[in-house]
Simulated scan of single mutants.
Amino acid sequence: MTQPAIGNFKRTKEIMQKYGLHAKKGFGQNFLTNPTVLRGIVDAAEISKVDNVIEIGPGLGALTEQLAQRAGKVVALELDTDLIPVLADVLSDFDNVEVLNQDVLKVDLPQLIQNHFDDPTKPIKVVANLPYYITSPILMHLLGTKIDWAGITVMMQKEVAERLAAKPGTKEYGSLTLAIEYRMDAKIAFNVSRRSFVPAPNVDSAIVTLTKRAEALSVQPRDEKQLFGLIKSCFTHRRKSLWNNLKPYFKKDAVKQKQMETILAKQALDPQIRPERLTLNQFIALANAMGEAKLFG
Rank of each mutant, 00 (worst) to 15 (best):
L87Q: 09
Y173V: 14
P4K: 10
L100E: 09
R70C: 07
R213D: 00
V75D: 04
A189H: 00
D119E: 14
G169V: 12
V37A: 12
V104A: 09
K240P: 04
I6N: 04
G169L: 10
T121W: 02
T64A: 08
S241H: 04
L67V: 06
Y249W: 10
H237R: 06
L278S: 05
Q220H: 02
K122G: 03
H22P: 01
V53C: 00
F9K: 12
T36K: 14
I284D: 06
N202E: 10
E159H: 01
P131A: 00
Q257W: 05
F296R: 06
D43K: 13
T279R: 07
L91N: 13
L91Y: 11
E215P: 04
E172D: 14
E276Q: 11
K251W: 03
V126E: 01
F235D: 14
L178Q: 06
V160Y: 04
G59Q: 04
S48P: 03
N244Q: 09
F94K: 09
A44F: 00
V99K: 01
L142F: 04
N281Q: 11
A214H: 13
L100D: 09
S136M: 01
N202A: 15
L77M: 06
K146H: 14
M140W: 02
E224N: 12
T236I: 14
T33W: 01
T211Y: 02
A186C: 03
G26P: 11
P221M: 01
L210I: 07
F250K: 10
I284T: 02
Q66E: 15
L210W: 02
I152C: 11
N34P: 02
S193C: 06
D270E: 13
S205R: 02
Q267V: 00
V104G: 06
F31M: 08
I147G: 08
V219T: 10
L109P: 02
L278N: 08
K125M: 07
P85R: 12
D185H: 09
E65Y: 04
T170C: 02
A268F: 13
Y132G: 01
L286D: 12
T36L: 12
A62S: 08
A268Q: 15
G72L: 05
S136R: 00
I207T: 03
I138Q: 04
I147D: 08
K13W: 04
V126C: 02
T236C: 07
V86H: 11
R277T: 15
P275V: 09
L230A: 11
E55H: 03
F228H: 14
F197P: 03
D108G: 10
V97I: 15
Q3F: 11
F27T: 03
I41F: 12
K125I: 03
K225M: 11
F190C: 01
